[in-house]
Design a binder for these strands. Structure first.
Lengths: 343, 343
DNA sequence: CTGAAAGCGCTAACAT
DNA sequence: ATGTTAGCGCTTTCAG
């Protein structure tokens, strides 16, 4: 099957005009008589003419489309961020093409290359947890492709970034657990490659230090696929809970990780014994049992800001050399899961 | 900023060959000497040549991309379905472009038109709750654009469809509530335009009839935006719970609706009094309090099957005239929220 | 005011 | 075995 559509040529033929006249009439050029214009516009309307964006892209070397690369759309944080992205893009006349890396570096590379080849005007990227090496992005960026990072950024590439204040979010969450008088607070986090992992880990460590709680490496567990692979999380939890000295609270970095971990804990019936909190943007934290204490990120706003930066970059006539690195505050929403008194 | 890339022309110039020779060498044509081929391939590799898919699309009138139109990706059902879609598309060499209608008919139309204009080879559509009129889709379809519906289908357009067995899913859920000895079972559903609304409503009605429970229209509430607009759901619940004769159970049709409704009920402290179940593909139904009884759809598989149908249609040489209407079974997962004994 | 022609990157007859 | 040319749909000089 193939899909045929009306072209400018059909209009020209039908009206006995040249292609260029039709083209000009369509875009309302001043050098076309109003009668011709009228005739063309009317006929175009009648046969429901739509310019072919592919031909336009080929000609103009721009597509008015921006590519988005995230790990998973089935992740509260990312789906909210994407809504933010769309809200801006849509108003500015850009279309959004969403791709998922599923935390695979290889898949991310394929997606990025395809988007570039398809001629998106710019890229909004949140790295996969496997992406230690970003050379393919860097190459593209150096060739002139506008790229803005959000959430999971890379220090290898100097450009605009939009992130949450992961350090403080993590610091406050940890401190909150300390104030609740938890003594052994474990931290389950994602791949050590990720910027967010490092920042959240630092917040955790500094909060402990501030309160003179010794840092125990055995209480820090990495799940390289950020909760996508359940066995990784299972292993982390088992290692923690089967140790002689169990943690009395667990703090998870990452949306997917928090949900996976919370689920496993609860199914292991271990939940009663440990305080729990984590980064997640779920809208239903209060419906869980126990109601979940969460660190929530301004995902929608992050998407919006990143998109504004990107479009600004795309539409800038000269190479951009001043970069903004926006940091947005997180919100700690305290519920039962982190209250020692109700455990 | 603009993004420059290497073309076949650059290779031709560098190697002192004609453009067509390079083109042929690149695609390994038998009429090119192996030396030339080697030289071209090596140089292409060296300068990291990538064919321009936009030029290709313009030429071949195909893009190897399929467009997806759903209401919301932040919906467990749809994000799982999209993963199914991607899993097949990716293997068959197609790219997936996801768009969201946010339950707006207008937005859906814009998305569909843009996808068509951008030259996707086919469309995978689940209608928005506002879409009573599908004439713009029909027009496109009649012009030859392959379209497959999944989940929310239209009887206006005769094509392949993939849906869950909504009728039986609903019937069983309702019957389950009846067996639990609930007497006044309310049904909160989405827009009456949608195929799924009708099917689920029928299942509900038939289960009541089978058990000689009179149907009460005042127990059926429509939320035209399927839970996207909280006030709609609030109003429905208020109307139900403030009536003289309150329902003793509520059955929700739709993923978003179920979560919104469950949340509201719980926050209204009304939860203790009513049994509850609904269609949703959440992975964490067991973590809620009370643990949620759900009707789950084989979303991933639905996405896969729809994509197989679509690609089959795209690649078919002759117009397709025999259509498959695949129905996949739902699963009722019983937990506490629907058990009368624990209320 | 309108038309002819070149060109965006690529493929595929049609030469040679 | 390789080159020349036309054409996909459109815009845009350049010529009338």
């Amino acid at each position: 099957m193939k899909f045929e559509s009306v072209t400018i040529k059909d209009i020209a033929k039908a009206l006995n005009l040249s292609i260029s006249t039709v083209s000009r009439a369509l875009r309302g050029s001043y050098e076309i008589s109003s009668e011709t214009k009228k005739a063309v516009l009317e006929y175009a309307e009648k046969i429901n003419y739509r310019p072919n964006p592919i031909a336009l892209s080929l000609k103009e070397r721009r597509t008015r489309a921006i590519g988005v690369v995230v790990s998973e759309i089935a992740n509260n944080f990312f789906s909210q961020a994407i809504n933010g992205i769309e809200s801006i893009a849509y108003n500015r006349g850009y279309h959004v093409i969403i791709t998922q890396s599923h935390e695979s570096q290889e898949r991310e590379r394929v997606n990025v290359e395809h988007l570039a080849a398809r001629g998106v005007d710019g890229l909004l990227v949140s790295l996969s947890s496997e992406s230690a090496d970003v050379s393919y992005l860097k190459e593209l960026y150096e060739k002139g492709m506008p790229i803005v990072f959000f959430d999971r950024v890379s220090s290898e590439i100097e450009t605009h970034t939009v992130v949450a204040n992961n350090y403080w979010g993590s610091y406050h969450a940890t401190e909150h657990l300390i104030y609740q008088e938890f003594k052994r607070i474990a931290h389950i986090t994602s791949s050590p490659h990720l910027s967010i992992t490092k920042e959240r880990l630092d917040g955790y460590k500094d909060a402990l230090a501030k309160h003179n709680i010794p840092l125990r490496e055995e209480l820090i567990k990495y799940c390289p696929h950020g909760g996508m692979k359940v066995p990784e999380v299972e292993e982390a939890i088992n290692a923690l809970m089967k140790a002689k000295q169990k943690p009395d609270a667990i703090f998870c970095a990452g949306d997917r990780l928090t949900m996976t971990c919370f689920g496993l804990l609860k199914r292991m019936k271990g939940k009663k014994e440990v305080g729990f909190t984590g980064f997640t943007n779920t809208a239903v934290g209060d419906l869980f049992a126990p109601a979940l204490t969460v660190i929530s990120q301004p995902a929608f706003e992050m998407g919006q800001t990143a998109t504004e930066f990107l479009i600004q970059m795309i539409e800038s006539r000269r190479p951009v050399t001043e970069f903004q690195n926006k940091v947005l505050e997180t919100e700690l929403i305290i519920r039962e899961s982190s209250k020692k008194s109700v455990l």
